[in-house]
Amino acid sequence: MIDDSKPIFLQIAEMIENDIVDGVLAEESQVPSTNEFAAFHRINPATAAKGVNLLVDDGILYKRRGIGMFVATGARDKLVGRRRDEFFVQYVKPLAREARKLGISSGQLAEMLGKEIDTDGAPGPTERVVAL
């Protein structure tokens, strides 16, 4: 699950984010501890802590003294909003580029997308990454 493409703490943060967006981790629910992340992914505990702290600094998670980390209220909306902004750059732009290359018109593209979204239906992505 951990790969070499980028720092591990970013990957840990992304995994937690994905679980929040997917609803696996509900708001105000407890997040696994740093040590649990470290043991499960066989990574350095300091690295796992760095990933979790990134989300704390971001206001996605918050710390309850002596108990652990929890998902903040409003964390999901915040993440979804941010991802919608990124969606355009990450998915729409390359899609448009490839469509142009293959001579697919914007109308055809819209039709294809409409069909795909309607048949797939379900809101969540089919492939889901579970943080733990």
Binding site: A39, R42, I43
Partner: peptide
């Protein structure tokens, strides 16, 4: 070995 190392290090840094 790697698992025990992480485990024990986490408990006793």
């Amino acid at each position: 070995f790697y698992d025990r190392l992480v485990e024990d290090y986490t408990e006793y840094p």
